[in-house]
Write a protein that binds this DNA or RNA. Structure first.
Lengths: 290, 290
DNA sequence: GTCATTCTGTATAGATAATTACAGACCTGC
DNA sequence: GCAGGTCTGTAATTATCTATACAGAATGAC
């Protein structure tokens, strides 16, 4: 019997396009915790993937197995082979790529950045920032520069869905002085500023500060000059094997913050979100769950 | 629920003396190829150990399990814990924050997402995508939807600095049909599309495809319908403990891709970058650091 | 919009597995 | 060798799982 050259996991991926919606959902559930998730009963697996058992049978057939038990047996054989040779330490992330491939080098650097950034972060500051942003009485302004524009946009978009009173400012445009007029003491200004730090951003921060605005700053490990007048400052590692800096860690932090603010304001903005959901449901691309 | 301090394997060995002849035979068979041998049916296991099925039940009861299925479930849990990546199980990332703090939970999920995404990625596709983007003869169009706008902007901005012939398209706006006119066979269209997938994005992809444009797609684990007409598709895990999805892994991939394209086009675009630097310095938007 | 096609879940029948009951086998000590 | 006990397997029962049939829902073509 010729050994299967592909693992079932790989086969699931390669034939992913040939699968239907429910089957993909199932395939993902299997890959999620591969291969253990496939070793229970068909009932368990189906329930975990939130599909019906026949769907499991159908997909397994598509993969070429006569039935679920055979599929499972194949999984066990695979696992057996994998376990006998000691599990190699995971220094490569993209297993299919050669050791020095950029995918592995880059990812390793990013993981390292996450590690170092999180080790240094002050949870009290983080919680304080979330509390400020969750306070409906404070208007929130979000500002980014040239490179950080995408980050501030991303932050703004989510926050704007979560709560009312959120405004986006482009620090480079000469329209931001107008926004300053709207700021009141106690309002919050979220600033993104990575090297090379922009003068207009610093100016904005200083002026806002004078009006009693609370400033939350996301910056890099060398810290933007804005940090001098920021109430809360979060600095992230951004160095990667690239000509450019990485925004991954900053994005991780801001997504985490959004998750927390969302949670804290859930009661007050539930309706807001649900209205939004309804609009999305119209697209009918996604299955509804109860 | 108190965690079991001993593994089932250890328990088998420590209570080996309390077992009967047939049970020892069975215990040995289980340990022979641990733990996979215990994951089949009770019948298979009994046959393999050359004992009867009731013997299996009796021994399992001696170990303290109510029945064979529970024993097997415990084996699976054990296995699961064993094969999950040690890096992903680094529970506390922000050491100063309490265990269940959102910073730790969120980061853990993201690391897990990175791990799973990279494990599934096809390096050949990745390299092929980089080659397409590094080819100066091909014009590149970058398109994003509502949520993915920030990502496509970020990608566009970097690519635009690296090379000439890069255009940004907003899939929602009704201006994109004009961009279609500019597309020629062999050009490249980079599309970002996460759930919930947008109809206008799909339409754009189809029309571009008809014109012989190469399509590179960044999507989520469930894959946008665009994947059907994409030449290269990169799907990332995006689920985190939040009401929203995470873009971190997608950003990681696109940054890596930018790093590689930059490297490949370095000779040709060195001047471009230097000219850019000079412009920025002249406008004095940025403070100079040494 | 309407129709054909494909997909997906419910219900159910069929298969298999897990457990129990029980009787014979095997020790052990006299 | 035989009585008391334990151990073990066979066979029957029960529970659970797997596969199928079919109908309703979703999708895609016109």
């Amino acid at each position: 019997m010729p050994e299967p050259v592909e693992t079932i996991g790989e086969r699931l991926q390669s034939s992913f396009d040939a699968l239907t919606r429910a089957e993909r959902q199932l395939a993902n559930a299997i890959l999620e915790n591969y291969p253990v998730s496939g070793l229970g009963s068909i009932t368990t697996l189906a329930a975990h993937a939130k599909v019906s058992t026949p769907t499991v049978v159908r997909m397994v057939r598509k993969l070429g197995f006569p039935g679920f038990p055979q599929f499972q047996a194949a999984l066990r054989r695979e696992l057996e082979a994998k376990i006998t040779n000691p599990i190699a330490k995971h220094d490569t992330w993209a297993e299919n790529a050669p050791d020095g491939h950029i995918l592995n080098r880059f990812t390793e650097a990013v993981i390292d950045n996450i590690h170092q950034t999180l080790a240094q972060i002050d949870p009290q500051s983080f919680d304080a920032a979330c509390a400020l942003l969750a306070d409906p009485k404070r208007t929130v302004f979000v500002a980014g520069g040239r490179i950080t524009r995408a980050l501030s946009d991303y932050f703004y978009m989510h926050l704007q869905m979560i709560r009312r009173g959120v405004t986006s400012i482009e620090s480079r445009s000469n329209s931001w002085p107008h926004s300053l007029l709207d700021m009141e003491a106690g309002d919050v200004l979220v600033i993104f500023d990575n090297r090379r730090y922009e003068n207009s951003t610093i100016k904005l921060a200083e002026l806002a500060r004078e009006q009693g605005v609370k400033i939350i700053l996301f910056t890099d490990q060398w810290r933007s000059p804005v940090s001098r007048c920021a109430d809360l400052c979060f600095s992230s590692r951004i160095v990667v094997p690239s000509a450019w800096d990485s925004s991954v860690v900053i994005m991780l932090l801001l997504e985490t913050m959004i998750a927390e603010v969302q949670k804290q304001t859930w009661d007050g903005t539930r309706e807001r979100i649900e209205a939004l959901e309804e609009v999305f449901d119209r697209t009918r691309f996604f299955r509804k769950f109860n």
